[in-house]
């Protein structure tokens, strides 16, 4: 069957539908009645490698993405829970953010040519702690994931990484990022450019 490029076919799972789950960390697989997968597995399936932007797991609804994927997420009647955007400043972005720059729909399951690409695996490691009671450090890169609560709180959060204290909104007061994860090298700043 020929498919029209740009036209979005109803596809794949609406992922983080934890609000509809019976088991806390698995979700139903649409089109396969009774089948369930761990949310971690579904998360990995949507990414070319750990860290890649996920493909969009639903059809287009003709609305701005940030209407639902705002900084807290939103329950969408008849569809499920739209997880919050983890990106900084989404709420204030309004019509000046272009999600489709990085996130694309999946309109077919076919491949043009089979690929031998084997991306870096999903890292589900916990953050390390200085002492037994110390707050864990952030075990992942923070760039593009500045809104911690998008993944660590709310109906869209995976149980394994849900915070016990979402009311304490200034996460990085206690949880430190690991600088090395964000900057692998110490090259000279380009001359004359004022880098942030």
């Amino acid at each position: 069957m020929r498919r029209v490029t740009g036209r979005i076919l109803p596809i794949i799972a609406l992922a983080a539908l934890s609000g509809t789950c019976t088991s806390p960390d698995t979700v139903a697989v649409p089109g396969h009645e009774g089948a369930r997968k761990s949310s971690a597995e579904i998360r990995a399936e949507r990414r070319a490698y750990d860290g890649a932007p996920p493909v969009i797991p639903h059809r287009g609804f003709g609305a701005d993405c940030v209407n639902c994927h705002n900084d807290r997420g939103r329950s969408v009647s008849g569809v499920g829970y739209a997880p919050a955007s983890p990106h900084e400043g989404t709420r204030s972005a309004g019509g000046t953010i272009r999600c489709m720059q990085c996130h694309v729909f999946r309109t077919t399951d076919a491949e043009f040519v089979a690929s031998e690409f084997d991306g870096v695996a999903q890292a589900l490691t916990s953050g390390d702690r200085a002492t037994a009671g110390a707050p864990p450090r952030i075990p992942h890169r923070v760039v593009m994931r500045e809104n911690c609560l998008a993944c660590h709180d709310g109906p869209g959060a995976r149980e394994a990484i849900r915070t016990t204290h979402p009311e304490r909104t200034r996460c990085r007061q206690c949880h430190l990022p690991i600088e090395k994860l964000d900057r692998f090298t110490t090259v000279t700043d380009p001359v004359g450019m004022d880098l942030e």
């Binding site: 070319a48 490698y49 890649a52 690929s115 690409f117 084997d118 991306g119 380009p190």
Partner: peptide, 29 residues
């Protein structure tokens, strides 16, 4: 096995587009 936007690059400051994020696959057809 992976790429990420270079936060030290004055061009893109850590951000890429969908083609850039999927660069590694380009090598392995």
């Amino acid at each position: 096995v992976t790429v990420r936007g270079d936060v030290k690059s004055p061009v893109n400051r850590g951000l890429l587009c969908v083609k850039g994020y999927h660069l590694p696959g380009m090598l392995y057809g």
